[in-house]
Design a protein around this nucleic acid. Structure first.
Length: 470
RNA sequence: GGGGCCAUAGGGUAGCCUGGUCCAUCCUCGUGGCUUUGGGAGCCAUGGACCCCGGUUCGAAUCCGGGUGGCCCCA
């Protein structure tokens, strides 16, 4: 693991996924991976956070089928064109060929919206805010990578809403962005939000807002998207409602999603050369207690360790009573990213203290045994704040501004990250910028700046972000 | 989208070029036991592998073809 986080990110990533028991990559199908119980537990805690945030804003969780009939799937022309070369098809039932092929959902618009058409009749049925957490399938032909490029996306949280006006849909986009900001803040994952360029928006959307973070190798990773679908899908799927004037009108829709990539971002953002460092809120084990046994004292130590665990309830506390040397246990839990380790040995008992070691800083502390719970809670809160602050500091250092395309190009080649430049809005300039820099335009950050297009020099108010993507 | 490298116990590897001496090397790991425990313990015993299909050959981990899977670089 030594120094690979900074110097060989790919190697660190592959190693940590396996050693921290996040995913087993040995499943014999390309692009499909097995969640280990430990990784699955992190996933569960992360999902708990997003569910809480969505439910607070009156979203309802539902569940739609995995299989979508070809005729529904093909209804929206742009949508299908965006996905058709990566769809898995179910063509047979047993030995019999199906009359209508069934798509394994690559995303669920075409599974959900036919039902929206049935459910929505009046403006009173809206806003309708539904979400589901499911697996989706995409036949990736490129290099697949755990959590980053999958053939089965195992953790696809997609929300779909319908509204009775464009303004309400716009407000929903804003609400979704706020929810995601809170979500990533909880995970301590830094982000930038921008509007994807026209040619890169979700197929069938009016526009797409996207969250990107930056990985240690300098690449940008899309971690969430929010789409305003306007009436595009409601027209194809005939989702209509009777408005206040008594007329039939097509609904205004939005959808927004996150995927396994947020788990990758969580792991990578706070990782270091010793392994993971998990945010306490989503750590399967928040505190691990390592008993320090000495001959003759084992029973007493075990008794005290058990008492300590009970005193720390309801924190997620685990006792490591494996028959191993303590040092070996320390390494294990550091790789797995347990935020706080407590040690209890004869010396601690004699002094009525508990030894604590922070995963993020390595700092060693002596906690008074009598108010250990308050102290531990305080440390976990401190770890949360420090991890978040550190992540944002690192992130912001990787965002630069450039006046010219050449300058942007030099920065991106040398250190990667995200570079902001001004752009006139023409597709020709965009193409030239992407060709010169060799990276993509991530999106439009602002349309309220003063300056000149870095490519052609024409005056513009648009600031965009460039970065090499995953 | 283009190019390169690779596949041997649970993990990491040697052997492959030059086919036989390989019932396959070393480290790690698993199991049983003894001793130990404040940063990866030691000893004894024991367990486990040549990616798949086909071809060449008296003989294939090794050579050839295809498939599957993995990694890296460039666009």
């Amino acid at each position: 693991m030594r120094d690979t986080w900074r110097n060989n990110f790919s190697e660190w990533y592959n190693e940590i996924i396996e050693k921290a028991e996040i995913l087993d990559v040995r499943y014999p199908v390309k692009g499909l991976y097995v969640w280990f119980p430990y990784g699955f537990s992190i996933r569960s805690h992360v999902l708990h956070v997003i569910r809480r945030l969505l439910n607070e804003k009156n979203h309802q969780e539902a569940l739609f089928p995995l299989l979508i009939p070809e005729d529904e799937f093909a209804k929206e022309a742009k949508h299908i064109r965006g996905f058709e070369d990566e769809v898995y098809w179910v063509t047979h039932g047993g030995l019999q060929e199906l009359n209508v092929k069934l798509a394994l959902r690559p995303t669920s618009e075409t599974a959900i919206y036919p039902m929206f058409a049935v459910w929505i009749r009046s403006h009173r049925d809206m806003p309708l805010k539904i979400y589901q957490v499911v697996n989706t399938f995409r036949y990736e032909t490129k290099h697949t990578r755990p959590l980053l490029r999958l053939r089965e996306i195992t953790t696809f949280k997609e929300a779909h809403t319908a509204h009775s006006s464009w303004e309400d849909a716009e407000a929903q986009v804003a609400e979704a962005i706020e929810i995601y900001k809170k979500f990533f803040d909880t995970l301590g994952v830094p982000y930038t939000v921008s509007r994807r360029p026209e040619w890169d928006k979700f197929p069938g959307a009016e526009y797409t807002m996207a969250f990107d973070t930056i990985f240690p190798d300098g690449r940008a990773l899309q971690i969430a998207t929010v789409h305003n679908l306007g009436q595009n899908f409601s027209k194809t799927f005939e989702i209509t409602f009777e408005n206040l004037e008594g007329e039939q009108e097509h609904a205004y829709q939005t959808c927004y999603g996150i995927s396994d990539r947020v788990i990758a971002a969580l792991l990578v953002t706070h990782g270091d050369d010793s392994g993971l460092c998990l945010m306490p809120e989503v750590a399967p084990i928040q505190v691990v207690i390592v008993p320090i046994w000495f001959k003759g004292k084992q029973e007493e130590i075990n008794r005290e360790v058990k008492k300590l665990q009970e005193d720390l309830s309801p924190l997620r506390v685990s006792i490591d009573d494996r028959e191993l040397r303590p040092g070996s246990k320390f390494y294990d839990w550091e790789i797995k990213g347990v935020p706080l380790r407590l040690e209890l040995g004869p010396r601690d008992l004699a002094d009525n203290v508990v030894t604590a070691v922070r995963r993020d800083t390595g700092e060693k502390l002596r906690l008074k045994r009598d108010d250990v719970k308050k102290e531990v809670e305080g440390i976990l809160e401190k770890i949360t704040q420090d991890l978040r602050a550190r992540a944002w500091r690192v992130f912001e250092e990787k965002i630069k501004e450039a006046a010219t395309v050449e300058e942007a190009s030099a920065i991106l080649r040398k250190e990667g990250g995200i570079v902001r430049i001004k752009w006139c809005g023409s597709e020709d300039c965009a193409t030239d910028i992407e060709e010169t820099t060799g990276v993509s335009i991530l999106g439009i950050l602002s349309e309220d700046v003063e300056g000149k297009c870095a490519q052609c020099g024409r005056p513009t108010k648009t600031l965009i972000q460039l970065g090499r993507t995953y």
